[in-house]
C-alpha cells in the first residue's frame, strides 16, 4: 500500500462563528482519485480550498511528506506548491487561451512539451488557442482550465465540479486525460454532483455525513 503524502488531523472550520465541520481526519496517497460528497453547505469547497492552501482553517494538523505534524500556517506554502485548485467556474485570464496555458509554465514541475500537445489534442482545444479566453463558453473554459492545471503537473489536482458544462463527447476525453495524469502518479480530489460521470475515474469516496462525520468508502 502506498504511503500517504498528506495526512490531515483535527481539521475544523467555522464561518463567522458558525461551525461548518469539526475534527475531520483523512489522508491522501499518490495515485488516489477521491470523490468528495456531501450536501450543499457541508463544507466540500471549504475542504478543497484548505487543501490547496487558499483558505486558513480554524484548526487543523497537517503531516506532509512524512514530516512531523505542523499547523496550517507552516504547511501553507507546501500545500500551495504541490496542488492546483480548479474553481467550480474556472477563471481564465483576459488574454488568449495560449497565454493562459503558458501561465502554467511558472510551476516547478511543468509537463513536457510533447505531453502538453497531447493534452491539448485530447481535450480538443487546439482550435481555441488564439481566442480570447473570456469569450469561450463555460464548457470550453472548463477544458482549457483542466489543460492549464495538468500543464503544471501538480502532485494533487483539486477539482470543484469540473464536468458541469462538459458535453458527453468531451467528457470521455477529459476523463481519459485525468486517468493518464493519475497513472503518472498524480492524485485527484474532486467534488462532483454528477456521481455517475465520476465513477469511471475515482477509486474512493469521502462522504460528509449531515452529522458532521467524514467517512471513506472504497469504490474498488
Amino acid at each position: 500500500m502506498t504511503q500517504p503524502f498528506l495526512k490531515v488531523r483535527q481539521l475544523s472550520h467555522s464561518y463567522n462563528g458558525r461551525e461548518v465541520f469539526s475534527d475531520f481526519k483523512f489522508s491522501l496517497s499518490t495515485g488516489d482519485a477521491v470523490l468528495l460528497q456531501g450536501e450543499n453547505g457541508a463544507g466540500k469547497t471549504t475542504i478543497l480550498k484548505i487543501l490547496s492552501g487558499l483558505l486558513e482553517p480554524t484548526a487543523g494538523n497537517f503531516v506532509l511528506a512524512n514530516q512531523s505534524g505542523t499547523t496550517y500556517k507552516m504547511s501553507k506554502d507546501q500545500l500551495r506548491s504541490q496542488s492546483i485548485y480548479l474553481h467550480q467556474q474556472p477563471f481564465l485570464f483576459d488574454t488568449s487561451v495560449e497565454k493562459n496555458l503558458a501561465y502554467a509554465g511558472d510551476s516547478a514541475d511543468v509537463l513536457p512539451l510533447q505531453a502538453q500537445q497531447t493534452v491539448i489534442a485530447e481535450l480538443g482545444i487546439q482550435n481555441l488557442l488564439g481566442h480570447n479566453a473570456t469569450n469561450l463558453s463555460i464548457g470550453q473554459k472548463q477544458r482549457v482550465a483542466i489543460a492549464r492545471s495538468l500543464f503544471s503537473n501538480p502532485r494533487l489536482l483539486i477539482l470543484d465540479e469540473p464536468f458541469t458544462a462538459i458535453d458527453k463527447d468531451s467528457f470521455v476525453n477529459v476523463v481519459s486525460v485525468l486517468k493518464q495524469y493519475k497513472n503518472r502518479g498524480g492524485t485527484i480530489l474532486l467534488v462532483s454532483h454528477q456521481h455517475d460521470r465520476s465513477f469511471d475515474l475515482i477509486n474512493c469516496c469521502w462522504c460528509i455525513h449531515p452529522r458532521g462525520v467524514l467517512y471513506c468508502v472504497s469504490v474498488d
Partner: peptide, 18 residues
C-alpha cells in the same frame, strides 16, 4: 474584485509580483 483572479494566480504557483 472576483476572488478567483488571485486564487487562480496563487494556485498556479505564480510569484507575488506576477
Amino acid at each position: 474584485c472576483d476572488e478567483r483572479i488571485r486564487e487562480t494566480a496563487i494556485t498556479l504557483g505564480l510569484p507575488e509580483w506576477k
